[in-house]
Design a protein around this nucleic acid. Structure first.
Length: 105
DNA sequence: TCCGTGACTTTAT
DNA sequence: CATAAAGCCACGG
């Protein structure tokens, strides 16, 4: 896993605005390389410095080990949470061309 | 090479 | 709507 890839992922996560969420799969697609699991891998090792709680799974739930912490922070910043799950249909972040870090390297 | 592992996803029950 | 099974991708032993 090279540095360029890691930085691309971290930059995107940093670009997710408060009150919104995104998924591992979406990030993978934006980066254009690797898959959801690779994105998860990056956050697991180097995600301490970015808003990791805004990255959740495709089913709207944060990864199991971090569910408590993530859901509380999300709720704190106004993200709707129902039954331990975020309604992606409404809270999912859809970056406009100018909000994207773009030139990802 | 083969195999297990993981901050995952999709499809089928 | 909840679960299970299979698929997927990169890494390391």
């Amino acid at each position: 896993m090279d540095v360029a890839y890691v930085e691309s992922v971290l930059r995107l996560v940093e670009a997710v605005p408060p009150g919104c969420v995104t998924t591992y799969g979406d990030l993978a697609e934006m980066v254009g390389r690797g898959g959801p699991r690779q994105v998860g891998s990056v956050l697991a090792r180097h995600g301490s410095g970015v808003p990791w709680w805004r990255v959740i799974r495709a089913d709207g739930r944060p990864t199991d080990a971090l569910a408590e912490r993530a859901l509380r922070r999300l709720a704190d910043e106004g993200v709707p949470v129902r039954a331990g799950r975020v309604p992606l249909a409404s809270a999912r972040w859809r970056p406009g061309p100018e909000s994207l870090p773009d030139r990802l390297l």
